[in-house]
Write a protein that binds this DNA or RNA. Sequence first.
RNA 1: GUCCCCAUCGUCUAGCCUGGUCCAGGACGACGGCCUUUCACGCCGUUAACAGGGGUUCAAAUCCCCUUGGGGACGCCA
Length: 467
Amino acid sequence: MPMGKIVSRFAPSPTGFLHIGGARTALFSWLIARSRGGEFRLRIEDTDRERSTDEATRAIIDSMKWLGLDHDGEIVHQSERADRHNEVIDQMIASGHAYYCQCSKEDVDAMRERAMAEGRKPKYDTTCRERGLTSGAVRLKAPLEGATAFRDMVKGPIVVENAEMDDMILRRSDGTPTYNLAVVVDDHDMGVTTVLRGDDHVNNTPRQILIYQAMGWDVPEFGHVPMILGPDKKKLSKRHGALSVMEYEKMGYLPEAVCNYLARLGWSHGDQELFTMDEMQALFNPDNLGSSPSVFDLTKFEWVNGQYMQKADPDRLAGLLCDFLAREVGAEEAAKVDRATFAKIAPLLQPRAKSVVDMLEQARPFIMDASFLHYDEAAVRKFLTDETKPLLEAVARRMQALPEFSEASLEAMHKAFIEERGIKFKEIAQPIRVAIMGTTQSPGLFETMAVLGREQTLARLERALAL
RNA sequence: GUCCCCAUCGUCUAGCCUGGUCCAGGACGACGGCCUUUCACGCCGUUAACAGGGGUUCAAAUCCCCUUGGGGACGCCA
C-alpha cells in the first residue's frame, strides 16, 4: 500500500469502443483514486498501429466523459513513447538484465511444441542467453529459480514460480518495444501506484514485476477484477450486452445509473443497492471487490435506471427529451415542442419510465396535436360507447365553463359531477382517458388534463365524440 | 498438456480473513396481495442457495485437503 498520494490509471487499447466491461474497470480505477484523494490518469495503449484507430480513441474519451469519469493530467499516448521504452531496454541490456536473441519464430515454435509434448510448460529455452549477441530481438534475462509473489487487492496472495516464466521479448527484431515492457515503463514514469485492471492480466503481473525489479523500481499495488459474463455465463459478447457505453446512452440510460449498476456488479457495500456518485467515492474500498465473475443482468440494470429516472430533476429530463426527439425527427421539427412542455410532462412520467427513450415514447400522446392523436381501436370500442359518450359530452361542457383549468379545479369539478349523477368515478375515468390519450394507460387523469391544457383536452374530447 | 484464478437463492450479492449471534440476510426477477381512476410507482408477503466428498473442532457457509465444474494465461498481440 503506497504511503503517499495514490495514482491509478485506466489504460485501454483503442481497438474498439469502450464496452461495459472496460467501463467497469475504468470506474473502479477512478473510484480507488477518488476515494483516497488520489489522481486518476488515462493512457491510450495504441502501440498496435494495425488495430488502433482514432475513432476508437475518441469513442473511449467520449464515453469516459459521459460517465463522469474525469481524469487528471494529460492523456498519454503510448505510441509516442517508443524512444523512452527503448532507452529503458538499452539500460537493461547494459545492466545485464536483458540480452539479444536471434532465434527465429520457427525455432521458438519448435521449442514450444517439444515442451508441450513432454508435458512441460511451453517456453523459450534460453538458447541465446549467454551468446553475447549484439543485435536482434531483446529478451528479459528472467531469474531461473525462486518465485515472484504479490498481494492482489482482490484475489489475495499470488505466487508464481519463476521457472514458469520464460525470457519474454522486450523489443522485437523490428525495434519496437512490446506491451509488457511498455506498460511497466509508462506506469512507472506516470507515477502509477495502483493498477486495477481486468482479470486477463493476472498472468502478466509477475512478468511485469520482474521488469520493475530489474530496473530497481517500486512495484505498484495490483488488483485484478473478474470479467463480466453474459446470461449464458459465457464471456459477454455483442450478442447480449457488451455494447459500447454510448449504445446505452442512446437507449436512454442515465450515466449515474450505468455507474451505479456497474459498481454493484462485483462490488458491494453491505446491503446498499443505490449509490450517488459521491457516495460511491466515499464508500469505495477495494476490499469489497468480489473475486468471482458476474453475470450482466439487463433486468436489474433497467430497475436501477428506473430508480434514477424517478429521482432525476424534471428539467434535466426535459432537456434530454428534447435531445432525443431532435435525434429522431431532426432539430427543426423537434423545436416545435419546447423544453418547458417536457418539464411539465416529465414528473408525471418519472415513476413510469425505465429510460429516457421509454419516457419519450410515453410522452408522445402529450405532445401531439389532437388531430394527430392515435386512438387504440379496442379501447375505443370498449369505452367510447353510446352509454359513455353523453357523459363525456356533459363533462366537456363543464370543462369549458371552468374558470381555472387546473388539477385541483378539475378534480373538484369531476367530484361534483359524479355526485350529481350518482355514478362512480370509475364509470367515467377510462372513457375520459381513452378520449384524451387514445389508450387505456396514462398518468392520473387530472394531472394529465392540466398538463394538456383546456384547448387540447377539449379538442380531444370533441374528436373522440365523433369517432 | 502446464500454470493461475474462481465456486452462497435463476441473477447481483451480505456473511468467510477474526469458526458459534446463519434451520444463511438484502436486492432484481417471478408469484400472491394491498393501494388505486388505468398503467406504473409504493407497500406487504411467498419462492429460492452454502458445488460434492473427506478431514480439523464441542461447533464449519466460514479453517485444511481432494474431486468436480467454470474461466483465464501460456505470442517478436495488447
